[in-house]
Design a protein around this nucleic acid. Structure first.
Length: 473
RNA sequence: GGCCCUGUCGUCUAACGGAUAGGACACCGCUCUUUCAAGGCGGAAAUACGGGUUCGACUCCCGUCAGGGCCA
């Protein structure tokens, strides 16, 4: 059997971590089985569907490296297919037109509630004769289309949870379409899944209660059922399902902040699944090789942003400065960082990136940790003080450093020589390095001073030391 | 409210009837070090609760409680 999976978002919001995880697992499973992964846009809700969200979904998937083999297929372009199914269901008397008005339905519902029954449709219009229906149609009485639901227990198999039971008598004959041209979610989804040959429906656990409704369509049409696997939900830090409402950031926001797609993919896959052994940093290739859908965890998991940051650091450190430069140049979301690439020579810029990335969480962070290379520095003179030394002692140390540096010929201005010279100046090396480091960075915490001096060069370094000495006078 | 799903360190997870319940993030020490980061070493930290089943339950069953989802 050729495996076919799909990701079927409705374009009513930006793609966030929760739905990206669903897409990812569908993709990984399909690829692990040498199957196909399909993108379907469920845009039948014309009010809430927006083109901008379609673009966002497509762009986000592309960025994450979740490539679909077919699609995007738009439901809005498939109205004829749904119409045929609806007509067939009515023809076979599996579904019927319901002419009840909102007021009538509301009255019945209130009645049922007062009787302590679950509110559901009582099937009045199912009893209408063909003649009665035709009369109402000719009078243009508005209607919806309902599916006939048998009063029995439906059991379906979820690949991760085993058998799930559902009492259909609680459901009543639910609405599957507002008209022949306006299918609802519970109709359009199974129809597409069937016609698109989807073998495995992998989606969020919030769809478990929807599953019986969709299975009923399959049964009414006499179609072979797909395999269902409902993924655990990702919960926000505050508890509820991760969603726009719970302050979930979109994938593109992470991109904008300088996260790497590898880190996000690795992070998401760890929510509910884990690679063999004790390793946690895994590439998409390894994931695809080791992935087994049955091994996916069923319990919901909370989103842990600190672990995402940690993974991002891991991947950031693996990148060479040249690769980071390329990312900045090629990603419009990081466009503004280009300015940083033009200040120093390419060689020096690579060195700066190297220093910055060791301390950065994200690509964007790189330049904030080494901002002293790019902006005028200022700091309170107290920052120059190492331990309990006096201003006088620090000033003298800086003067010694300055004189030593001035005496170093240009050709010997390299790491080893500088280290030998600076190491020899004071018994307490902190008396040398701390004030020197503050003088060139203005910061409490920064990369090591010699690395910085080498990029600034002799002249600029001496200028900065002179400024520091000036402060202490 | 009804129905459904789920309960292992704070968080993500391993253990799929048989070890001192393992790892990762975060946290706290120590170490390295001029600072920060990274690294190395170490620490604290969990089977929700109550009943069964079994020679033996994290693991199977029932109940309670808790969290979450869907519908209304």
């Amino acid at each position: 059997m050729v495996i076919r999976t799909r990701f079927a978002p409705s374009p009513t919001g930006y793609l966030h971590l929760g739905s990206a995880r669903t897409a990812l697992f569908n993709y990984i499973f399909a690829k692990s089985q040498k199957g196909f992964f399909i993108l379907r846009i469920e845009d039948t809700d014309k009010e809430r569907s927006k083109e901008i969200f379609v673009e966002d979904i497509i762009e986000s998937l592309k960025w994450l490296g979740i490539n679909y083999d077919e699609g995007p297929i738009f439901q809005s372009e498939r109205i004829e297919i749904y119409r045929k199914v609806i007509e067939e269901l009515i023809e076979k008397e599996k579904a019927y037109r319901c002419f009840c008005t909102k007021e009538e339905l509301e009255a019945k519902r209130q009645e049922q509630i007062t009787r302590g029954e679950p509110p559901r449709y009582d099937g009045t219009c199912a009893k209408l004769t063909k003649e009665e229906v035709n009369t109402k149609l000719s009078q243009n009485v508005p209607y919806v289309i309902r599916l006939k639901v048998p009063k029995q227990i439906l059991t379906f198999k979820d690949l991760l949870r085993g058998e799930v039971k559902y009492d259909l008598s609680l459901l009543g004959d639910f609405v599957i379409a507002k008209s022949e041209e306006e299918p609802l979610f519970h109709l359009a989804t199974p129809v597409d899944d069937y016609y698109q040959g989807i073998t495995h429906i992998i989606r969020g656990a919030e769809h478990i209660p929807n599953t019986p409704k969709q299975i009923l369509i399959y049964k009414a049409m006499n179609w072979k059922l797909p395999i269902y696997a409902h993924l655990p939900l990702i919960l926000g830090e505050s508890g509820g399902k991760l969603s726009k409402r719970h302050g979930a950031k979109s994938i593109q926001e992470y991109r904008q902040e300088g996260y790497l797609p590898e880190a996000i993919v690795n992070f998401l896959v760890l929510l509910g699944w884990h690679p063999l052994g004790q390793k946690e940093v895994v590439s998409l290739e390894e994931i695809i090789k080791e992935f087994r859908l049955e091994d996916v965890e069923v319990r919901h998991s909370a989103f842990n942003p600190k672990k995402l940051i940690w993974l991002n650091r891991v991947y950031l450190r693996k990148k060479s400065p040249q690769e980071i430069e390329k990312l900045i140049l090629n990603d419009p979301y990081l466009n503004d960082l280009r300015n940083y690439l033009e200040v120093y020579s390419a060689e020096d810029t690579y060195k700066i990136i190297e220093l910055g990335k060791e301390r950065a969480n994200t690509i964007r962070d790189i330049f904030t940790t080494v901002k002293f290379f790019y902006q005028e520095i200022d700091y309170p003179k107290e920052l120059l003080i190492w331990k309990d030394y006096t201003f006088e002692q620090i000033k003298n140390s800086l003067i010694t450093i300055k004189n030593s540096l001035e005496n170093i010929p240009e050709e010997k201005f390299n790491y080893e020589f500088l280290k030998t010279v600076l190491d020899s100046l004071n018994e307490d090396k902190g008396l040398t390095y701390w004030p020197l480091r503050v003088a060139v960075t203005g910061l409490e915490a920064s990369p090591p001073p010699i690395d910085i001096i080498l990029i600034f060069g002799k002249k600029k370094t001496i200028e900065l030391i002179e400024k520091a000495i000036e402060k202490l006078k």
